[in-house]
């Protein structure tokens, strides 16, 4: 391992994001400029005067990571220094899908040669598990708490990959920290792609999702194996390289591993929500052709 993300960072034990950053930098190598919006990644990696980064890294504001990355790319181009490295922006789901959405859309539209990676831990974990537009249905967050009158989050996740594809990007992919080789392969492809590219990366937060820290990788694999997080690439608008499943697991296998869904298993209303989540997994399977037909 190249160890470009130094030890001593302040992420919780078992942090999915810390694994993700380590694997991303392993794939890109040291010739890369990284931009981060505000979020866990910024907080844990750069308490002044320390930093965990061994590559050039900058943080500016919550909403403008994509703009800063665009500026760096345009600057390198203007100075004729594009061969010095690729520009990478790594942000959380809040900084990408909520607060930074406008800047991100602008970056896509202007066609900057930047790879944007959104590590999606499905809420604002840094400030204490407030819901974001990426929080899945049924999840209990501090601003959508489950209780007598509510089963938690009521809105489905935003489809970030489709939003990126709608901008006409040449390379878009969904990835999971549970599949390290696949993730590193996708990061390499995205960085090598000329023009903007986007990776939507599922990354567990053991504190916010409330599962034991040792189960981080296992839980993320279960999201893929139940069909809730399909792994695929979209190259020039075509869905390719879908990870197909020989035997898709029921969504309960994924939901029961996490405290944020535990209330769903206690009431009839919860059972109905689980049926709704299963229907979403079935729809994913239908849309991306996840189920592998094995002749008996």
């Amino acid at each position: 391992m190249k160890n470009l993300f130094a030890s001593g960072h302040r992420a919780c034990g078992g942090c999915g994001m810390a694994i993700a950053i380590k694997l991303i930098l392993e794939a890109t190598g040291e010739n890369v400029f990284v931009v981060s919006p505000t979020g866990c990644l910024e907080i844990v990696s750069s308490p002044y005067p320390e930093t965990s980064w061994r590559v050039p890294w900058i943080h500016s504001l919550f909403e403008n990571a994509a703009s800063v990355a665009s500026g760096i790319e345009a600057g390198l181009k203007a100075l004729g220094r594009k061969d010095e490295g690729k520009v990478l922006a790594i942000g959380g789901d809040g900084g990408t899908a909520d607060i930074g959405m406008g800047a991100l859309s602008g970056m896509f539209e202007r066609g900057h040669d930047v790879t944007y990676i959104c590590y999606d831990n499905e809420a604002y974990m840094n400030t204490g598990v407030q819901r974001s537009s990426m929080t899945p249905i049924g999840a209990s967050a501090t601003t959508t708490p489950a209780g007598k009158v509510s089963y938690g989050e009521i809105h489905p996740k935003k489809d970030l990959v489709s939003i990126a594809v709608a901008h006409g990007l040449g390379y878009v992919a969904s990835a999971s920290v549970g599949y390290a080789a696949d993730l590193m392969d996708k990061v390499k492809k995205a960085v090598d792609h000329d023009g903007p590219s986007f990776i939507h990366l599922h990354s567990s937060c053991c504190t916010g999702w409330r599962h034991p820290s040792s189960k981080t990788v296992e839980v993320m694999r279960l999201a893929v194996l139940t069909g809730l997080w399909p792994l695929y690439e979209v190259v020039d608008g075509e869905v390719v390289n879908v990870k197909r499943l020989a035997k898709r697991l029921p969504v309960e296998d994924y939901l029961k591993t996490q405290g944020r869904f535990s209330h769903l298993f206690k009431t009839d209303e919860g059972a109905e929500v689980i049926r709704q989540i299963q229907a979403m997994a079935d729809a994913n399977a239908e849309q991306y052709g996840l189920d592998l037909d094995i002749e008996e």
């Binding site: 130094a6 001593g8 960072h9 750069s46 930093t51 965990s52 980064w53 590559v55």
Partner: peptide, 10 residues
């Protein structure tokens, strides 16, 4: 900050 300085935090 200088690269990789978080290693002082054990």
């Amino acid at each position: 900050a200088d690269p990789g300085t978080s290693v002082v935090n054990l």
